[in-house]
């Protein structure tokens, strides 16, 4: 093997590796596909799924599909579109049992699955927000009253009726998409989005006083009620400080 032949091959291989890496990276799809219940986080899921379609075959409702080459999704990987066919949340989750690579985490209880999160995206078209009593998503929800509940608000337009607004609770919603599938308007107002699209993140530094009260030390406890407006002067200031903080132990008696 001559030197030039070898270096030509190395150059070819390097070019091939670069091109291949680029193609594989862009083949991940838009990241907006809903995965079967129990799926690992998207990156791990795409790595672990062997594209065998056994989950698709196990699904009794033909909810799951394997992406074909022309779709803007990772090819060969299972996904579902709830507006067409939602997940019916089988108790025994046969799709999970069929997965040979554990890309669908075994022994995931179906109610712990997080395929996505239902979001009431379009309040302008949702009938409940027009003051009509629709409630179809609420009644279609397999975890009715938990994953979707109705929030009653006074209806000012008529002055004597109420709004019954559907509210999703992410601690229950599995992302099955029964609501999206059931929504009666032409284009669903409520849609299931992948979790990382649907969810914001509070960040480490935020604390809500009213939920964290028990954890705040006594010295910095908030006053139970607002202090009286003090007369200005040293006495007044002292009164404010006293009412806001317990000064004993900080100040010499």
């Amino acid at each position: 093997m001559t030197g030039s032949f070898r270096s030509r091959n190395v150059a070819l291989a390097a070019t091939g590796a670069l091109a291949w890496t680029h193609v594989v990276d862009s083949s991940r799809g838009s990241g907006e596909s809903l995965r079967p219940p129990g799926a690992l986080p998207e990156r791990d899921f795409l790595a672990s799924c062997i594209k065998c379609g056994q989950c698709v075959e196990a699904c009794p409702f033909e909810t799951l599909k394997l992406a074909t080459a022309e779709e803007q999704r990772a090819t060969g990987v299972p996904y579902f579109e709830p507006r067409k066919t939602p997940c019916y949340m089988c108790e025994d989750a046969p799709c999970i049992g069929a997965c040979p690579t554990d890309a669908l985490t075994p022994e995931t209880s179906i109610e712990d699955a997080r395929m996505g999160l239902a979001v009431l995206l379009d309040q302008e078209n949702c009938l409940a927000f027009q003051g009509l009593r629709c409630e179809v998503c609420y009644r279609a929800c397999p975890l009715m009253g938990k994953a979707i509940s109705l929030d009653m608000r006074p209806q000012e337009r008529t002055g004597k009726h109420a709004f019954f607004l559907p509210v999703v609770d992410s601690s229950y919603c599995t992302g099955c998409g029964k609501c999206e599938s059931a929504c009666i308007i032409q284009e669903a107002a409520i849609k299931v989005l992948p979790l990382d699209v649907a969810k914001g993140e509070l960040g480490e530094h935020y604390r809500f006083g009213w939920t964290e009260e028990a954890r705040i030390s006594r010295d910095f406890q908030a006053p139970r009620k607002a202090p009286d407006v003090p007369a200005w002067g040293e006495q007044g200031l002292r009164k404010v400080l006293e009412s806001m903080n317990d000064l004993s132990g900080i100040e010499e008696p």
Binding site: V24, D25, G53, L66, T68
Partner: peptide
């Protein structure tokens, strides 16, 4: 490339996989 990208590199392009899958699970441009 599998190690670099974290995706099974041949499996995501394999014409064998695409032809076979789409013959079984339904046709596509694969």
């Amino acid at each position: 490339v599998s190690a670099i990208t974290g995706v099974a590199a041949f499996e995501c392009l394999s014409p064998i996989g695409m032809i076979h899958r789409e013959l079984i699970f339904g046709p596509g441009l694969g």
